[in-house]
Amino acid sequence: MMDLRLLWLMAIVMGVYQGFNPPIAWLRAVGNGLEARSSRAVLRTTSCLAFGHFMSMVVFLVPIAIVVAELPASVLSMQTIMRVGWALSLTLIGFGVFKVLRPHHPRFIARIRPDQPIRWSFCMGIVHCGSPVMMVPALISLITAGAWISTFHMSSTAKLAGATMVALILSGTMSLALFFTGSVVAVAVYRRLGLRAITRYWINLDLGWALMFIAMGLMGLLMG
């Protein structure tokens, strides 16, 4: 069983990675800051982007957490968990390969107005960057192992509350890491580089993000 601390660290690292990614976090914030000529506009945008990302994870992870919490302990055997882990690992590999072959954003995202950063970030999280999908193995491990295993000996309400709390904290951990990293980068770019950053310092991290999906899937298969 993977060290639970490693799972939390993984969520933080992924949030930091997303915070460095221009299309996901800081580029739109810098643009809004330059338009409004205000650092507050930068931070307001990064907070909206982080919240949209958080909501995209919540609507995906909370239902899964509820289903896992409702399963009887006899179903959640080690063999079953390993089979689910293999299926999730293959899903991650497939999604990563898909993003390598089709790295472009879905067309409908481009139609979302610039003054709707929460909606834009929510859609990006669901259909493009795939953070909720990547967090499913970590979510199941956190619910079924370590300190959270005690929830399966509680009442149904307590189990649901515990599993839901895990999903919310996991989503919040990654989203906060995205917010702080994206805010630091956005403010630094806004104050020091301005528009020059778009033409001189552009870094597209989407390929690395897709390869991370594949690497995590392979790691899951090897661990299994």
Rank of each mutant, 00 (worst) to 15 (best):
M135W: 10
M212D: 00
G94Q: 04
V133Y: 12
A145Y: 10
S141V: 00
H153S: 15
L160S: 06
I93A: 08
M174T: 02
R200Q: 12
K99S: 13
G94Y: 04
I93H: 06
V185D: 01
R192L: 14
M165F: 13
R111T: 08
R102S: 15
V185A: 06
P137D: 03
V100A: 11
W148V: 06
S175W: 06
G208V: 07
T151G: 12
V187I: 10
V189G: 02
A188P: 04
Y190A: 00
V184G: 08
V189T: 02
T80N: 08
A158I: 02
Y190K: 01
M82C: 07
K99L: 15
C123M: 13
A188W: 09
T164V: 15
D206V: 07
L178Q: 03
L160T: 05
Y201M: 08
K159S: 14
I198A: 04
Y201I: 00
M135R: 11
R192Y: 11
T91A: 14
P114G: 01
T181G: 05
W209T: 01
M154Q: 14
S171F: 06
G194T: 00
L90I: 08
V136M: 11
R192D: 00
C123D: 04
M78Y: 07
H128N: 10
V97G: 11
R119F: 13
V136D: 08
T164H: 13
I149G: 10
A138P: 09
G194Q: 05
A167V: 00
A177M: 08
L142T: 03
S156E: 03
C123Q: 08
S89D: 05
I140C: 06
L101T: 11
L139F: 14
A158E: 05
P117R: 03
R196M: 08
I198P: 01
G94S: 09
I143H: 14
V189S: 02
T157Y: 15
A145T: 12
I198F: 07
I143C: 15
M212R: 06
F95Q: 11
L170V: 06
R192F: 12
S89T: 05
R102Q: 15
A163R: 01
V184M: 12
Q116H: 12
R191G: 03
A167H: 13
G125H: 04
G146D: 04
S183T: 01
P132L: 01
P106N: 13
Y201S: 07
L88Y: 09
R200G: 03
M165G: 14
G182S: 05
A197C: 04
D206K: 05
A161R: 15
M154N: 10
G94V: 00
R200N: 10
I149H: 13
L168D: 02
S156N: 07
A110S: 14
Q116Y: 12
Y190Q: 02
P132R: 01
I112E: 04
I118N: 07
F213W: 05
M212L: 15
K99G: 07
V84L: 12
S150L: 13
A145S: 12
V100Q: 13
K99Q: 15
T144F: 10
H104E: 15
F108M: 14
A210C: 10
I140G: 07
R191I: 00
L168S: 07
I169D: 05
K99W: 06
N204A: 11
Q116P: 09
I198L: 06
I118K: 09
V166N: 08
F180N: 00
A177G: 11
Y190N: 01
A177P: 06
M124W: 04
L142A: 02
T157D: 15
L139E: 01
L176H: 00
